[in-house]
């Protein structure tokens, strides 16, 4: 089931994240953070606080990995969790 988003969200794929933290630095809303836990490669992957994303995409472009971050803007379709 997918739904049309009323608010933008940022989705981090924890296994693709190398924990460099550039997305956290780039986020103007300060809504990204690195978790204390590890992914299978031993990095602290980034995550979205779940609130406040404007869909600006800065984190997407700051991230060096192709598939670590996906930004869904307001009005985008997204699989409902």
């Amino acid at each position: 089931m997918s739904k049309i988003l009323e608010e933008a969200i940022t989705v981090v794929s924890p296994e693709h994240c190398k924990g460099c933290g550039l997305c956290v630095i780039s986020c103007p809303q300060d809504v990204l953070f690195q978790i204390d836990g590890f992914n299978s490669k031993g990095y602290h992957p980034a995550d979205y606080t779940g609130e406040g994303c404007t869909g600006c995409g800065m984190c997407f472009y700051a991230c060096p990995e192709p598939a670590a971050i996906t930004v869904y803007k307001k009005g985008a379709e997204h699989d409902a969790a």
């Binding site: 693709h16 990095y43 472009y61 060096p64 192709p66 598939a67 803007k73 379709e77």
Partner: peptide, 27 residues
Amino acid sequence: LVLERPKGFYEKFERKPGDKSNTHYCP
């Protein structure tokens, strides 16, 4: 509406040994 893995990349990095979805670059 969605900023995601660009289509200019291969869907899977088949030529890369090991992990086929991440780059070989350092964090």
